[in-house]
Design a protein around this nucleic acid. Sequence first.
DNA 1: CCCATAAACGCAAATTATTTGCTTTTAGGC
DNA 2: GCCTAAAAGCAAATAATTTGCGTTTATGGG
Lengths: 199, 199
Amino acid sequence: MAAKENLRPGGRSARVQASVHMAVRKLLQSLDRADVTIPLIAAEAGVTPSTIYRRWGDLQELLADVAVERLRPDMVPIDTGSARGDLEVWAEQYAEEMSSGIGRDMMRDVLAAQDSTNAYRCCGFTRDQIEAISDRATARGERFPAIDAVMDRVVAPIIYRILFGDAPSNERVRDLVSDAMAEQAATPQPSPASALKSA
Amino acid sequence: MAAKENLRPGGRSARVQASVHMAVRKLLQSLDRADVTIPLIAAEAGVTPSTIYRRWGDLQELLADVAVERLRPDMVPIDTGSARGDLEVWAEQYAEEMSSGIGRDMMRDVLAAQDSTNAYRCCGFTRDQIEAISDRATARGERFPAIDAVMDRVVAPIIYRILFGDAPSNERVRDLVSDAMAEQAATPQPSPASALKSA
DNA sequence: CCCATAAACGCAAATTATTTGCTTTTAGGC
DNA sequence: GCCTAAAAGCAAATAATTTGCGTTTATGGG
């Protein structure tokens, strides 16, 4: 039930997909998560419930599908002039978005789905953002840690804390960035792009 | 729907809880996750469905409740003679357990529930384990990084990778431990126990 | 030890969600 | 423009969830 691949791209099928996604987003704004049901979504989207059941399987898959769209970054990381500044600003904003009620819910939706493809894609978005910062750094002639190191030392702690405990403060996020950047300074490995692409 | 607090501890209530938990565990062994329903669990447990609905609310909360029990560590971290060895062995075992199908499912269940208390408790279990290793280290006169540092640099990357990508290899887990221990060596902060308790 | 009280459970009816067989619409290839 | 099959609609059948009400049974106070 990928609902993304092997799907007729044109006409009605795409219209239904858009309509259902929009309905989900609209309903999630006004209603409590537990009150959003497939029949409700279907009514809002002007579609019969069985269409949704057949295409997405169940509510969780649909919510995951919608969530992963919303988690896709809509802009390139802000250019502050330095790699450290770029990463710091990006990480703070990322932490804030993800720890907000909406961000938390979307992560929950993505992780709750049986199909783990969405989670994987989600991780790829983040990696791409960091890669953009990294590329800019090397273009400037700055050193930058390996992408994986940033994922491990900045992204992972932020997300772990949001999921399992309390959202990290801006100060802590800055500390994480500091540690990651320091690590790079000690280790002479300015290799720019050896990472795996995604999505 | 905590199903844990304000619950009559004695007699029938406890019996029902135990029976339902056992039924869930049994059914999860033989059936696919998607085929486990509340009526099924109720039948297996010898209880009416409405009892489960009233006590846990929905399937996800029940699954989370069962999962968190199973995620509770059943033993103290192995004593290898050194803090580094302790952490290394513990981390490898932890990563392996969590990346197994069962571990992954349990984490999913815990995170998918509306009630985030379970996730928080889950994190507390892990923290307690690391604290035990830390305490043993200071008792031996060894230095050891702050608990939070280990959570950020070892636990968080392991879990992040399991949830959003691929399970980390043993080698990578060892590297994470190395980094965490090295950090401690550079920073003179042997403060033993300043962490927050849980559960 | 027994009684009063309220929590938890069982039962069954009512509601709501999900599945499914079949028909109709329609995108994509010839 | 016509086939073909994927996707959608419709409605009946099935299954899950909610709810009102009566019964059982912990728990606390006499």
